[in-house]
Amino acid sequence: MAEFFQLLVSGLATGSIYALAAVGFTLLWQASKVINFAQGEFVMLPAFFILIGTQVLGWNFIVALLFALICTLVLLGYFFKRVIIDPMLPHGVLPIVIATIALGIVMRDSVKEFYSAEAQPFPAVFSEETVSVFGAVISVQDIAILITSLAAITLLQVFLTRTRTGRCMQATAQNRAVAEILGVNVKRMILYTFLINAALALMASVLISPIYLAKFSNGQSIGLIAFIAAIVGGFNQVRGALVGGLLIGVIDNLSAAYISAEYRTAFPLILLIIIILVRPQGLLGTAEERTV
């Protein structure tokens, strides 16, 4: 029982980081029908902005974090929207898919070329001590990661539902034309969505890099798992992405421990197939109708 509890907490912690990346997928999809296949690299890159701050420029972690936040918002939020998405959007979803795949490759290879192909140590933001809960030894870092991620997603949900700007963003997501008629500054709302996605990516990067180490190739696995989490939970619901992320994290841990470590990467995909067959809109997603 203690082992199960430890696996559960650890899985929820990792899953909550996947959820941060998965929420980014759903936000961009809702706001502008963009599927960002560079989302994993968006999580990988901010860790290197911080390392540039601490290792190259010699700043302390907090200053480096602020530097990374500015770089992330400007490059992965503003410029991503203006330089890649805006020109591509009129041409449909497929060119954007191709463009973001290419962007992911460019980001990965740029870090490899200009920083290092080797993994880099990354400072832990939380205590690495352990506590005993009901006979199970639980990592403080896991608990802190879980709380931080859930708090961030809850705040986002509150922002989207309880503030005027958030409701304008939701209106834009639901029906862009009507929102525009009602006087919503649609372009600004979409920009906010991209900036929030970038900020969530930075948060995921800071939480996951102390465990996975900072490496140019980290984005590949994180991006794939976050994408699966978003589909499993429901691509058009923030809370769906949260549930999907947590579920994938827990299933990954439990399947590796109790079924097969060799096939652990296959279980999230099996879950994805089952969800698509049984409930195509995802666990918490809503069915969308389109005229064809």
Partner: peptide, 9 residues
């Protein structure tokens, strides 16, 4: 990347 389940075992 993730060794949580291995370490718990």
């Amino acid at each position: 990347a993730d060794f949580a389940s291995d370490v718990i075992k």
